[in-house]
Design a protein around this nucleic acid. Structure first.
Length: 877
RNA sequence: GCCCGCGUGGCGGAAUAGGUAGACGCAACGGACUUAAAAUCCGUUGGCCGCAAGGCCGUGCCGGUUCGAGUCCGGCCGUGGGCACCA
């Protein structure tokens, strides 16, 4: 008979609810601990087994820390905006709020059934106006800020405006595009609102851009790069299309996002992913004069390139512009115009897939124009090719086919000259190049650089460029600005209107007092089909007035992406009901940063980068006091199906948490998902193995309660523990605490099993004291049974108010050791001997062992290695 | 192509400042209890040889360092994940 888990689990869940056992308050007398998992998206499917894995892990840590005397913050909520709810709404004409609420109720029931100790008084919901008011508030702050390049932080845009009003726009501490039209103070005052808005958009941290986006006709929306693969898997098509989009200037924070990775305790792989994603490159920007073309020299201007190898400038034999480069039109020779236009059109039609996967073969066309290599004055042809991206660097490159794979390939395809300007040390500088030499070496055929090693040659070239006004040192990042709008209904509306003073529309922020901006009630959630969101079809919502001027205005109809609400949610746990601030200073100061955050590695460069960006921005605003939000991140691994393949409905190998809970009880399910193996590992589910953990809990139950489940008579003894059990008890307390701290739950559970095995072997019966300790040790994993037995042992308060057991280091130490006797490194004998014997004593054991003697017989002893309290190795030949 | 990570019994996995390989659990086999089954309890369980004592082999493969390597180093093979023309 299994113990009555259903009964006791319901009993304790009800007890915890009515006693508000998990309610957390700030307590200045206690140290704090903030442990999080990822708040779920409440899908229609309900919980899958991946949830119990990470949620149990954080729940276990929460309970340990609480018993150790910490004030523990552990809350959850709902990441409830998003595509699936809206697609469901489109299909069944049900408001997404309805399905979302229904799904949340299911999730809540499931989470409760697993016995999780969240502080539900802090529950948040990204779709709740009282929550997204603050998401919108943060967006407003982005819009109303610029990134000051001198102080390297977000600063109110009003400061910038004041500066322009009195001093004009030259020399602003703000990164502006090269060809920006500047305003004198006088010109600024004369400029229209629209002109001013266009200028300021170049500085704002949130701005509108006409950007090529990933347009999905079937969904009627634009997708983020990281969403494409998922939707394409579902059979949707994705094409490129230009649309007006909100963009967040995350690139301004690239350097800080990169540098502060040094301060966090995160998985190495995730830190590396973020580093690579940010993609910092050091090099130089170099200007090439256009030598030949249809325009006069004054009009032609210069082509600026970015290179990480300025030392190879003498080897630049041609240039390539991205097809979208603004200069292409101006420099293209009349004879080549047709071919160039045709190529540009061809490239535009290519999808991302064709441009990357299939475009192994290099393509491009000659523009008919030439540039002058600033190092040697040689005229080199200017081409356009789609292997050069408009969005990176300057959208143009100098091609050094001798020392770059891509340039080499292109040069070979089009018969362009390849010269060597770097050679490995000690190799003939004239040796022909059959493949590009991309390593560092010694500069050759490079005038004043010749003979210098790559590092020096780079520095020298930059020095030369700067001295001659032909270029300068430069740092570029792969990171792009963050496309921040979606053409959907079910998301946060932007607190933005468009007004027109007769000179064209421009976006304008609504005042903070107007927040939250609510979604209108609608009848149809069908995408408009034009690329605009369903909101665009509701004219009574779209058409509004500018609260400042009373003039007619139009609302922004895009909504924010799902990342918006999840980029700051953890802050709201700390002060969920505050209607004056996003979070109070006191709460933020006390609880932040997050001490432990467990979540899947798939968010390495999305959620965890976005959240860091928002946090740094809030740091600049003074809302938070730490530059990084998450001290420690840990990734749970994937749980596979029985057969070792991914759990999926189509494969029919999905494990349902509800069924498991009703069959074995929550305590067994919780313990078993963690017992399966290391948290971070990918491991297959084994439905038979769960019995092992279930038996373990049953055995504990029977030792306290007895066979009939009713009597409280127990066979526990108050006799003292045998010395070996006493020692094991201390060892186990130590190990379980350390293992939970290190998130090694599987070995923590097995240590408890070992303790139980030993307790059952006690000659005088199972000691009550040992049982009390064991109950505390398993309480984080199996809270219900621990509570029940704790109560039956005569305690009247929750076990989670009891202190975590302590151990005595001295009592964990064995007083005898197993001495290993080896001959030539092979095990020949084992002896139980007292701890702390001298080397000579240990060696004498070896010399007296018959089996050791047998193996050294007839040989000469060369050496005897003695390791204190461990082994003796006799080396004989 | 580049960058990470991982290869240990029939299975999930223990063990790394280099020092008893296989903890704990599953499965399997044998036994006890039972009219029987379930549940429970006891025992065996890396392979080979041996009546036993014991011996040989064994942590993907090859080599190296070391008295001693699952653990460190080099080279392969396999496998999982991330990035993908970033100049």
């Amino acid at each position: 008979m299994a113990y009555p888990f259903s009964e006791i689990e319901l009993k304790w869940q009800e007890y915890w609810r009515s006693h508000e056992t998990y309610r957390t308050e700030r307590d200045s007398k206690k140290p704090k601990y903030f442990v999080m998992d990822m708040f779920p998206y409440p899908s229609g499917e309900g919980l899958h087994m991946g949830h119990p894995l990470s949620y149990t892990a954080t729940d276990v840590v929460m309970r340990l820390k609480r018993m150790q005397g910490f004030a523990v913050m552990h809350a959850t909520g709902w990441d409830a905006f998003g595509l699936p709810a809206e697609q469901y709404a489109v299909k069944y004409k049900l408001h997404p709020r309805i399905t979302t609420e229904k799904n949340i109720a299911t999730y809540r029931r499931q989470l409760d059934s697993l016995g999780y100790g969240y502080d539900w008084s802090r529950e948040i919901n990204t779709t709740d106006p009282n929550y997204f008011k603050w998401t919108q508030w943060i967006f407003l702050k982005f819009f109303n800020s610029y990134f000051d390049t001198e102080s390297q932080r977000a600063t109110p845009i009003d400061d910038l405006i004041r500066h322009i009003e009195s001093h004009g726009s030259e020399g602003l501490p703000c990164a502006l595009p090269r060809n920006t039209k500047h305003y004198s103070s006088k010109e600024w005052h004369a400029a229209s609102k629209k002109e001013q808005a266009d200028f300021l958009a170049q500085c704002r941290l949130a701005y509108v851009a006409d950007a090529p986006v990933n347009w999905c006709p079937e969904l009627g929306t634009v997708l983020a790069n990281e969403e494409i693969a998922e939707q394409e898997e579902k059979g949707y098509t994705v094409v490129r299309r230009n649309m007006r989009q909100w963009v967040l200037r995350i690139t301004a924070y690239a350097e800080r996002l990169l540098k502060d990775l040094d301060r966090v305790n995160w998985p190495e792989s995730t830190v590396l992913s973020q580093r690579n994603w940010i993609g910092r490159s050091e090099g130089a920007e170099i200007d090439f004069e256009v030598a030949h073309g249809a325009l006069s020299p004054a009009e032609r201007g210069k082509i600026r390139v970015f290179t990480t190898r300025p030392d190879t400038l003498f080897g630049a034999t041609y240039m390539v512009l991205a097809p979208e480069h603004p200069l292409v039109e101006r420099i293209t020779a009349r004879d080549e115009r047709r071919a160039v236009e045709r190529y540009i059109e061809e490239v535009r039609r290519k999808s991302d897939l064709e441009r990357t996967d299939l475009a192994r073969e290099k393509t491009g066309v000659f523009t008919g124009a030439y540039a002058i290599n600033p190092a040697n004055g040689k005229h080199i042809p200017i081409w356009i090719a789609d292997y050069v991206l408009i969005s990176y660097g300057t959208g143009a490159i100098m091609s050094v086919p001798g020392h770059d794979e891509r340039d080499f390939e292109f040069a070979e395809a089009f018969g362009l000259p390849i010269v060597r300007v770097v050679q490995a040390l000690g190799v003939d500088a004239n040796e022909p190049l059959i493949k590009p030499f991309t390593e560092d070496g010694i500069a050759v055929h490079s005038a004043f650089l010749s003979g210098l090693s790559t590092a020096y040659a780079k520095a020298k070239m930059i020095e030369w460029l700067e001295a001659n006004g032909k270029g300068s040192r430069s740092v570029k990042y792969k990171l792009r600005d963050w496309l921040f709008s979606r053409q959907r209904y079910w998301g946060e509306p932007f607190p933005i209107i468009y007004t027109d003073d007769g000179d064209g529309e421009y976006p304008k922020a609504l005042p903070e007092e107007r927040l939250p901006i609510l979604l209108p009630e609608v009848k149809s959630y069908q995408p408009s089909g034009t690329g605009e969101s369903p909101l665009a079809t509701i004219s009574e919502w779209v058409n509004t007035t500018d609260p400042e001027t009373g003039h007619p205005a139009r609302r922004e109809t895009n909504t924010m992406p799902q990342w918006a609400g999840s980029s700051w949610y953890f802050l709201r746990y700390l002060d969920p009901k505050n209607d004056r601030e996003l979070v109070s200073k006191e709460a933020e100061q006390y609880w932040m940063p997050v001490d432990l955050y467990i979540g899947g590695a798939e968010h390495a460069v999305t959620h965890w980068l976005y959240a860091r960006f928002w946090h740094k921005f809030l740091y600049d605003l003074g809302v938070v006091h730490t530059p990084e939000p998450f001290q420690r991140i840990f990734h749970q691994g994937m749980l596979l199906g029985e057969n070792g393949s991914k759990m999926s409905k189509s494969l029919g190998n999905v494990i349902n948490p509800d069924e498991l809970v009703s069959q074995y009880g929550a305590d067994t399910v919780r313990s078993y998902v963690l017992f399966l193996g290391p948290l971070e590992g990918t491991k297959p589910w084994d439905s038979k193995g769960i019995m092992g953990v279930h038996r373990f809990l049953n055995r504990i139950w029977r030792l306290v309660v007895g066979e009939d489940n009713v009597t409280n008579l127990s066979d526990l003894t108050d006799a003292p523990l045998s010395p070996s059990l006493e020692r094991l008890l201390h060892q186990t307390i130590k190990k379980v605490g350390e293992d939970i701290e290190a998130l090694r739950f599987n070995t923590a559970i097995s240590a408890s099993m070992i303790l139980l095995n030993a307790m059952e072997q006690e000659p005088g019966g199972v000691p009550r004291r040992a049982m009390e300790v064991l109950l505390k040790l398993i309480a984080p994993f199996a809270p219900h049974i621990a509570e029940e037995l704790w109560q039956r042992l005569g305690n009247s308060t929750t076990i989670f108010d009891a202190a975590w057991p302590t151990y005595d280091e001295a009592k964990t130490i064995e007083n005898t050791i197993t001495l290993i006797l080896q001959v030539n490194g092979k095990l020949r004998d084992k002896l139980e001997v007292p701890r702390g014997l001298s080397a000579a004593e240990l060696e004498s054991f070896a010399r007296e062992s018959p089996n050791v003697m047998k193996h050294i017989d007839g040989k000469q002893i060369r050496k005897v290695i003695v390791v204190q309290d461990k082994l003796v190795n006799v080396v004989a030949t």
